[in-house]
Amino acid sequence: MPVPSTMASNTATPSVSLDPQRSFQGLILTLHNYWAAYGALILQPYDMEVGAGTFHPATTLRSVGPRPWKAAYVQPSRRPSDGRYGENPNRLQHYYQYQVLLKPSPSDLQDLYLGSLYEIGIDPDNHDIRFVEDDWESPTLGAWGLGWEVWCDGMEVSQFTYFQQVGGFDCNPVSGELTYGLERLAMYVQEVDNVYDLNFNGGEGADRVSYGEVFLQAEQEYSRFNFEHANTEALLRHFEDAEAECAALLKAGETGQGIHLMGLPAYDQCIKASHIFNLLDARGVISVTERQSYILRVRDLSKACAEAWLQTAGGGADETSTPEEEPGNG
């Protein structure tokens, strides 16, 4: 179908800037360019609801096993209990993380990271950039690492972690993970105090689209959903279903020959269970005692998935074990 001619001819080129200091999307593109130039794969977000960029298989699973990996991507992240009905200037139940995973961690990782800050216009002569201790632990992923939260003038703009264990397995080699909180970083460089005032597209005047125009309504609606209306009985069922499905896929994918055939779909169910748990938590229906047991249930899934992953090509199974040939099968 041909494009109607009016659309092409009547729309003047809008005046937009890709300057990371004036445009949220410009910030993302700048980081993409920086890390692409470094040699990282620029991946797309994972198509599931996750609490953080770490859950993307490009981080969780790729950080397990011997194979080198360099990737960067944006991940929409949902934290139901952080919703504030759009009334808090910087708490969101849905936001974007920019995630970089370099395996093995290069020895100049701090400098590389600082280079990316300079690239988006943070001038080290006038800003106070600090690495403040923050050990990272994800009980649901059976993962932990040491590192820092990176502060810029008192604002936490990134998490910087050297993964030590994921899915209960020692990371060897160790991956370096960088997670930029994109909204915070953008608020910082655009010098706005309210996330909803961020310039999303870098447009001026009538061409300007704010973050609020894109997401305020969503924050209000999802806060209602997360805190008041999510059907907890259904969610409890969904949790059980995801857990059962994960276990079933893990079992079905076993070959008994050191090779697993369905680590990735099984891991999807683990992600699902984890997000449902977060929603239940936001609804306040999980007691402290139960909470621990839910966390352990998700952790069991993620450990089993990591174990399955190690038996796949991506997990390096073809490097560590060559499939044995059955006699007489030739």
Binding site: S107, L146, Y162, Q164, P173
Partner: peptide, 16 residues
Amino acid sequence: PKSMRWGTGTLRWVRP
């Protein structure tokens, strides 16, 4: 009190 490995090495230190 807590130490870590980095890169491909085996040495443990508080940070690299």
